[in-house]
Design a binder for these strands. Structure first.
Lengths: 198, 198
DNA sequence: TACGTTATTGACCAAGCGGTCAATAACTTG
DNA sequence: CAAGTTATTGACCGCTTGGTCAATAACGTA
């Protein structure tokens, strides 16, 4: 009965995501209107406002990021450690690409207050989810005998989240592909050492 | 002859820095007026506007950050590698402290456009400066024989900038002291391994 | 083809923004 | 103590902001 929408919701979120990636929450409602092609009111009807649309975009970004990492670290014939290696090298290229924008999750991380607000909750969950994926792959490596029996899979997983975040920021600072690749290879050496000097 | 100022410039910059650390460039002129105690016009006279004040704060933040790292990695009897270790462990504690705010440099990194604007230039310089300090210390370690002769000191230096940036973000996401310390120890294993699996 | 429902459109609004102005105050120096 | 210079103060301004409203359009259904 009702008048049908002229837009595809996921397309709108995707366009909005680019705008938010470029300008963060400081992106203007007008930017969004221009990027999505919708009118203000339609945007408001469909999503509820700028902030809500940001969360929606953030959620999609997170879904996509975890999907991508999941796929990169998933079974494909190579050993778990080889998959992590390939993943890190691809990240180095990705992060050093000149048109790469900082991920919404990282943006949200910086803009989050540390309190219990929705932004902080969302970013925290995002980090934990990513760490979970790394942990799974690392656990497989350990079962394979590619990591020492007493390797701390949990902290290593968080370590990989940290180093990828750091590489992302460095890419923003203009660090080029060669250096970032070298950094990725350095980072991987963590998996080869035997014991921490305590 | 002129009427003297009622404020100390460095104090104003310091107060402003906190506000910017908390809210980024989105901090309002009113926030700054409240935090510094100066009137708008005085702020304007002394610094030239919000953006200029931000740059001033960013510059101080950068100076302080490099000073701190320099001191931590400087000569103090311990070996270069031990100094790096101590530094990383202190960073883990610092970044996981609950009232810690994200550094202005990291903020600027995220908000920079990647173009040639002043923000990007400043952050790039900041990263390079930090990497330089790490490189110096690592070079000493190599001369000491604590690192293999063929270790790539330059990329390792950038690696340490990356992992500390990542740890900073994770601290923002609520990762606690224990986990962040474990991550720091993981990160250090890079210096113990012998050869990269190529 | 008339009706009910929702989408779209463009005008509109109050609040908050960064910044400015003009008047006044405080100090040093002659 | 008068003159010159800069600081401070509070009122003010034009613009942009996120959001709203009322009118109209487009569809399925009866």
């Amino acid at each position: 009965m009702p008048r049908p929408r002229k837009f595809v919701e996921s397309d709108v979120v995707s366009s909005a995501s680019e705008v938010f990636a470029a300008h963060g929450l400081a992106a203007t409602l007008d930017d969004l209107v221009r990027a999505t092609g919708l009118g203000k009111q339609s945007l408001y009807n469909a999503f509820g406002g700028k902030r809500e649309l940001f969360f929606r975009a953030l959620s999609e970004d997170r879904k996509e990021a975890t999907r991508a990492v999941s796929e990169a670290l998933g079974h494909d014939g190579a050993s778990p450690l080889e998959r992590i290696r390939g993943h890190m090298l691809r990240m180095a290229i990705e992060f050093s690409s000149s048109d790469r924008r900082v991920s919404l999750t990282t943006r949200a991380l910086v803009e989050s207050t540390g309190e219990e607000d929705p932004l902080s909750t969302a970013t925290k969950a995002s980090i934990e989810q990513l760490a979970g994926i790394y942990a799974q792959c690392l656990e497989h490596a350990r079962e394979n005998g590619d990591l020492p029996e007493d390797a701390n899979v949990q902290s290593l997983a968080v370590y990989f989240v940290a180093i990828t975040r750091g590489m992302e920021l460095l890419g923003r600072a203009g660090v080029g592909r060669a250096v970032l690749t070298a950094v990725a290879l350095d980072a991987l050496r963590v998996l080869h050492g035997q014991r921490m000097g305590d």
